[in-house]
Design a protein around this nucleic acid. Sequence first.
DNA 1: GGAACTCGCCAC
DNA 2: AAACGTGGCGAGTTCC
Length: 458
Amino acid sequence: MGVQTLADAYRLIHAGILAFSRAERQGIRVDVPYCRRARRRLSKQIERLEGEFQASDLYRRWEQVYRGKTNISSNQQLARVLYGVMGFVPSKTTKTGQGATDEEALLRLGVDELSILLQIRKLTKVRDTYLEAFIREQHGGWIHPFFNLHTVRTYRSSSDSPNLQNVPKRDAEAMEICRRALLPRPGHQFIEIDFAALEVHIAACYCKDPTLIAYLEDPRSDMHADMAKQLFMLDTLDRAFPAHHTLRQAAKNGFVFPQFYGDYYGNNAVTLAEWVKLSTNRWRGGQGIELPDGTHISDHFRAHGIKGFQDFVEHVRQVEDDFWGNRFRTYREWRERWVAQYRRAGYLRMFTGFICSGELARNEIINYPIQGTAFHCLLQTFILLDDAIQHLDLQSRLVGQIHDSVLIDAHPSEVSWFEQEVKRIIREDLPAKWDWIVVPLEVDMDEYAVDGPWVKGE
DNA sequence: GGAACTCGCCAC
DNA sequence: AAACGTGGCGAGTTCC
């Protein structure tokens, strides 16, 4: 099957909604007593931190201005106190021109008591956005998160009531508290099967860039390590060294992904410098992260003629030029053709038949097809798994989906079947249905304890 | 008292 | 010349 039509897109949505509705009806167990205990514990902790904060100089100034209306969760008040009264200069502003009060902006001020405020923010978020929602939305100890296919401009999905797609994962403390609340059915275990770098694979299908395809076909190649070498001017990169691992992560999250999303070297340079703990001024010796040979990254850069942030920006600009001009030239040419085509036609059509029209910015034109199509691979996989569960009368149940992963409440005897079946689906069914898949797709499986929550360990 | 907005922050 | 894509949601705020 080649080009997909709008009717194909409709059929995918239709089957998807039916499969999602079965997951919604199934639901997920919530440990309600745990949620209430955790909520109470967090409230006490927050209260203690508030007391600590109220003893600070900053809070005294705040009270002088707002008196009885003082509200430490008001960022508008905070901005007025910091930037209006105390004379701090905001390092950045919000869209409407107000001095920013997000974590990054507050940390840059170097005011000790603000770290208390940030801790309060984090714990409040966990309590009010997650635990509170689980308690509010549960019925008889079950939540039934919705998965929508009609709300998103890119034809991805969304989730609500509660949203299962934004439960904390990156912050270990927040993750632990929130995910401990969710459990599989007795005698079952959660498994999560996720596509590896799915959007990059889909991008390769659209642009057919030979270099990008080679990276995805050769398991020994490593795009992020190669970019780290170029960005940090190293001949070799050994991931066994913690510093080198950091540099690879920096290249991945501070350059490659942002570039693929449409960012530019100016922003990348700031992020990369932060990753390696270098300032945005001139660099002296012995600054930044320590390298395996005991020297520091600033020594290394200076030896290569980069004496400070300004030089580094210029260097990142050159890396960007090489990235799109040489390394991924075919990708760049696809982007240019794709944008021109949209501007001629007034709409774009994804491989999966979905159409986006209306006023789209350049980055949207490039990102929508990749983001949407990637999700459709997950959706088709979800549908096929749902079919199989019914036809084979399995005990396991699909209970959720997070853009490129499936969450399964699995019977232990069926876990390895799922792993094998998903691999078969992505190797056989998907490429047979969609001949535009020209790179091998891959998945990883995360397995949680039998009768254990949606978090690993202990 | 609710709608619509801003801001911040969680996920991918 | 400009410059990071998609959501949901809570709290605060403003407006009607």
